[in-house]
Amino acid sequence: MAEVRAIVLRAAGINCDMETEYALEQAGAKAECVHINRLIEDKKLLEQFQIIVFPGGFSYGDDVAAGKILANQIIHHLSEPLQKFIDDGKLVLGICNGFQVLVKTGILPGNGSAKQEAVTITYNDSGKFEDRWVYLAPQTGKCIFIEPGRQIYLPIAHGEGKVVTKDEAMLEELKAEGHIAFKYVDENGEEGDYPINPNGSMGSIAGLTDSTGRVLGLMPHPERHVRPTQHPRWSRLYKIGGTRDEGRETRDADGTTIFNNAVKYIQKNF
């Protein structure tokens, strides 16, 4: 089986790189955190990898708008190698700030400039940064990162996570074309107001995918739920009534599905 190589892109203010690298390694990839300057210096460097992750953080302090300065840097210095990466059938994952970067470069939802100028991510309705856990319901069967039908539980930690479209028509178009990867739902899978939808996203959108299904961006952090003890209620769930339940301890933590699926896809297709 081919070695799966994943690159976790670092830049000034990125801060979820190490745990993302760990999550990828757990899934079986050989992962590496690389600073964006190295990619700009050596445009061929990216060719060695099959997965690129834009991790969470506050790239360049989220100055002007979240992810904006890093997106601008990518547009002006890395457009070509990144487009080739996608065209080669490789995988792109953007988490939190990384999702914001993918939207602000136009890589998500993709498909040319019409959507690029019609979809954005902006300030939470609550007007503040929040760290809380959310349930996510998958909305598409064609995004290779997603296990169809499996509702997952992950934390969000952001101040600018509200997905907004220019108008209702664009929202309908995203739905119709299968761009919506995850929606925020409650424990029973129902959409709802704050805090079920923690930032006021239109259509409860938590994540988007492109037309190929090989690019995924999402606000919640899958890399923060790759061990059972990261679940906020693990001491209730895995110790039923106070006694440890070994069976449940070994169940995959929800965030691992995204990394496992990515690694499996590369193993199968490269």
């Binding site: 801060n15 979820c16 190490m18 745990e19 760990y22 999550a23 969470g56 503040k128 940064f129 929040e130 760290d131 809380r132 934390p155 930690a157 952090h221 890399e223 923060r224 790759v226 003890t229 990261q230 906020p232 209620r233 001491s235 209730r236």
Partner: peptide, 20 residues
């Protein structure tokens, strides 16, 4: 508490807010 990221670095085990 919610305005602070208490889970970055992926090292959290017992969080500041607990319970059902």
């Amino acid at each position: 508490i919610r305005q602070y990221d208490h889970e970055v670095q992926g090292n959290s085990v017992v969080k500041p807010l607990v319970g059902v």
